[in-house]
């Protein structure tokens, strides 16, 4: 490597606090292998075929490792949502038995579900990570951002995110975005260049050839990296089921006080109050996505386990963002417009 890549042997000394003695849910204990005893013997050639999940996992781990090899200061966006939890799980596998060699960053809208923040903090503690929080509330409080008329804070995350990336000196930012989520995301590269203003230029993306990663960029620019690009919502849930990955409870069926708005169920809470005409009722619901409370809706569901959710998602006739995100309904190109400005 001619520039930038960290010396591989400095990987371990660079990384944070050891997390001693906490068994990982998804990581079975070491099992002894039979092949070591008889080194020359080759196992039967008809070993079980790699599944689609195996292939997706292998691709995700390879991308995470390559970015750590090529960049100076990577960071992972971690909200406590299912996709970012899967990202952490892959990162854990990628570097085992060394700890995850980068910090995590959360852009907190100030309107998050409290149980998700509790989960976020518990994960950070369990994995011995360093957490940076970029607070939208701080930006509103000191006047750098103004509350929107519709009350949603998702579009307000962009500036605090770009500021956190710049002030942290991060040159690679991992996100859990998937191409099946949304039509602008379907156009994004796995490793995607942002200019010094944080902008995405969808008309001039870098070619992405074979599985070769090129994360080089000019000073001031950075890369957004999406190792789950090729996963679908169903793949994510099947992986959560297979690896027994813990998630915030609100991803599973629970009773909640909700009201109906724009054909979605919204929780009654400090950031989402029913209007006079909206009736509050108690329903059995779960969340398919977890974001800002003011614009994230729940779906009616009895799915109490990951296996139940897999069946539910396989049979669904509506996309996860269509079912649960008010902010994507702002216009046909709402996501593309936010992404061009630097949104994740």
């Amino acid at each position: 490597m001619s520039t930038q890549a960290i010396a591989p042997d400095t990987l371990a000394p660079d990384i944070g606090t050891p997390d001693i003695g906490t068994p990982d849910i998804g990581t079975p204990d070491i099992v002894s292998t039979t092949a070591t005893a008889d080194a020359g013997r080759r196992p039967a050639p008809d070993a079980p075929a790699l599944t689609q999940l195996d292939l997706l996992e292998a691709e995700g781990i390879a991308v995470i490792r390559e970015i750590v090899g090529e960049s100076r200061r990577p960071v992972l966006l971690f909200s406590g949502g299912k996709d970012s939890v899967v990202m952490l799980h892959l990162a854990r596998k990628a570097f085992w038995p060394a700890p995850i060699p980068f910090p995590v960053l959360h852009v907190d809208t100030g309107h998050n579900f409290p149980e998700v923040l509790t989960f976020r903090d518990a994960e950070v503690e369990r994995l011995g990570l360093r957490l940076h929080v970029a607070s939208v509330q701080d930006w509103i409080d000191d006047g750098r951002l103004a509350e929107r008329a519709d009350g949603t804070r998702n579009p307000l995350q962009t500036l605090p995110l770009l500021d956190a990336i710049e002030s942290g000196g991060f040159d690679a930012v991992f996100g859990g975005g998937r191409r099946d989520e949304e039509k602008a995301r379907a156009k994004e590269r796995i490793v995607s260049l942002r200019d010094e203003f944080g902008q995405w230029d969808p008309r001039n993306q870098r070619p992405e050839l074979w599985d070769l990663v090129n994360a080089r960029h000019r000073p001031g620019e950075h890369m957004r990296v999406f190792p789950l690009s090729n996963w679908t919502e169903l793949d994510v849930w099947r992986y959560i089921e297979r690896e027994r990955i813990a998630l915030p409870e609100l991803y599973y069926a629970h009773q909640r006080q909700v009201f109906r708005r724009d054909a979605m169920w919204f929780a009654v809470g400090p950031y989402s109050q029913p209007r006079a005409s909206e009736v509050v009722e108690t329903r059995t619901v779960r969340y398919r996505t977890v974001g800002d409370m003011s614009c994230t809706g729940a779906v009616e569901s009895d799915a109490a386990t990951a296996a139940d959710v897999v069946l539910e998602v396989a049979a669904t006739t509506i996309t996860e963002r269509g079912a649960t995100r008010g902010d994507d309904r702002l216009s046909e190109a709402a996501m593309e417009d936010r992404k061009k400005e630097g949104y994740f």
Binding site: P8, L11, P13, I15, T17, E66, V68, F95, P97
Partner: peptide
């Protein structure tokens, strides 16, 4: 891609 040598970590 990387040498994994965690040492005390």
């Amino acid at each position: 891609q990387l040498v994994v040598r965690p040492q005390q970590a």
